[in-house]
Design a protein around this nucleic acid. Structure first.
Lengths: 130, 130
DNA sequence: CTATTTGCAAAGTATTTGCACTCAA
DNA sequence: TTGAGTGCAAATACTTTGCAAATAG
């Protein structure tokens, strides 16, 4: 996946379009379901391959999670997330991650090219119900 | 793993002791290697089970990564990390995550109980060699 | 033409689990 | 004596990959 000149693919365009509109941070499975609406025969492998390409191209961000499925997010600017342990929803957070990244780079001398900032707990909605 | 009254186990104590001394953020496999030195017959399943218990008890933190193995960290206070894409090392970062968590809780109303803050890129050591 | 993309199914990887036995309290 | 801890092996869950056919440029 390094020295490959990507072509245009209807499926990939469809995946990216879906990701850009989605606010739910879909997993590969959810992307697969969505893409099947326009490409009924699309396979799981193809969805995974295209998600990897989109991440490689910088068009989407992979939200890694080893305990549940990875999710994908194509919304900019990239931002932090909050995962509710009760309802499972993944919220976007208005956190200026760029500022943190810059501060950090100056402090350590590392070249920061990516980051993932996640919080978890009980969301205000679930806490309110208690 | 909820309403269980944990007993003392030599293996678990040995794992925690190792984790507390380690600065390398060991994976389960590395923990297994280490514990085998004192308990030669310890199995992989037991290591995983005990790591989960330690995380459950709050004694250790699981550093989730879906692309590579999870790593474990028993050093306090909990902190952010930087992963070098070149050499693979995982660095501790002197980032005041408590401040960020508090700010966030006030801003959103969510009850924040956990977080994982990861950066990646090229570390100063690898960049210097270039 | 030629390299990328695809569907399908099989393989891969890290982690978890069932079972029978052992051990801590 | 009772239920947590253990070794072993099989199972699980998500993701990747090999292959031959289809397609973009």
């Amino acid at each position: 996946m390094k020295s490959v000149r990507y072509r245009r693919s209807h499926i990939r365009a469809s995946i990216l379009d879906y990701l850009r509109r989605a606010t739910s941070h879909p997993s590969a499975e959810e992307v697969h379901e969505a893409v099947k609406r326009t490409h009924p025969k699309v396979s799981f492998g193809t969805v995974y391959r295209n998600l990897n390409i989109l991440v490689d191209q910088g068009e989407a961000k992979r939200l890694e999670s080893s305990r549940e499925r990875d999710r994908f997010d194509a919304r900019r600017p990239f931002h932090a997330h909050f995962r509710c342990d009760s309802c499972g929803r993944l919220y976007d957070l208005p956190l200026d991650t760029e500022k943190i990244v810059d501060e950090l780079a100056g402090m350590t001398g590392h070249k920061v090219s990516d980051h993932q900032i996640d919080f978890s707990g009980i969301c205000s909605s679930c806490a309110g119900e208690g």
